[in-house]
Structures are given as C-alpha cells and as structure tokens.
C-alpha cells in the first residue's frame, strides 16, 4: 500500500471529515423533510442510508490507517523517533484513533433516529 507523505495528512483527517459530512447531510436532510411537512419516516430512512455509507467509509479509512500504523511489526505506539517510519506510523496511528472517535460520533449522531419517530 502506498503511504505518500502529503496525502497521508489528508488520510489522517478523512474520518472526521466523513463525520462532518454525515452530520451536515443528516441535519440538512431532516431540516428539509420536516420543514416541508413530509413524513418523518423519510427522514429516518435518509439517516439510515447516510449512516451506512459513513460507517463503511470510516471503516475503510480506519483499515488503511491501521495498515499505515503497522502496529504489529514492532508494537510501537510512541513514534517519537526522527525517522520516516516514525512519521508514517504516527500519522497512521493518529488516523486510526480519529477513525475510532469519528465512528463513535457517527453512531451517536444517528441515534436520534432510533428514538424519535416524528418531526415534533
């Protein structure tokens, strides 16, 4: 797998960007559906689809980051050395952790659709 140095900075924040997009889509969609007086079921369906996509994307990013971290080769999680490998594994590790937090964020953000079934 290729871990180019410039793109890996973007990889690191790809998962939180996915969280942001999921958040915007879910909020914008719900606001539109409820403002137009459509059925809240439509809103919940949209939320489910967006959440599925976001989880899949974050999982892919997380997997990529895990490979980049390559924890199992040396069990290093400090990455405080001056080598290229330290930097690459650091960005992978941070990206993996961000994917984890983003995943929790997406699940939290989808939870209202489980409990609330109307636009009230």
């Amino acid at each position: 797998m290729q871990f180019d140095r410039r793109s890996s900075l973007w990889h690191m924040i790809a998962a939180p960007i996915a969280w942001s997009l999921h958040f915007c889509v879910v909020y914008g969609w719900t606001a539109s559906v409820c403002a137009r007086g459509w059925d809240a079921g439509t809103a919940r369906l949209g939320i489910a689809i967006a959440t599925g996509l976001a989880i899949a994307f974050i999982a892919a990013i997380g997997w990529h980051a895990w490979k980049q971290w390559d924890y199992l080769d040396d069990f290093d999680y400090e990455h405080d050395g001056p080598s290229v490998e330290d930097r690459r594994e650091f960005l992978g590790h941070a990206g993996w952790l961000l994917a984890l937090v983003s995943l929790i964020g997406v699940l939290f953000n989808a939870s209202p659709a489980l409990f609330i079934s109307s636009c009230v």
Partner: peptide, 30 residues
C-alpha cells in the same frame, strides 16, 4: 471537528424538530 456540530445546543429552546435537536445533543455528548 466535533465542535462544529454543537451550535444548535445554544438553540435547543427555539422549537426546532426533536430529531434535529437530537443530532446536536448527540454531538454535544460525543
């Protein structure tokens, strides 16, 4: 990142739909 998903928690009482409030409540906890 998450701090951009919290703004409506200053507007919880403005009568927005519960579903919308829920997203911001969730992000504010996250």
């Amino acid at each position: 990142f998450l701090s951009f998903g919290l703004w409506v928690h200053h507007m919880f009482t403005t009568g927005l739909p519960s579903l919308s409030l829920g997203f911001f409540s969730a992000a504010s906890e996250a």
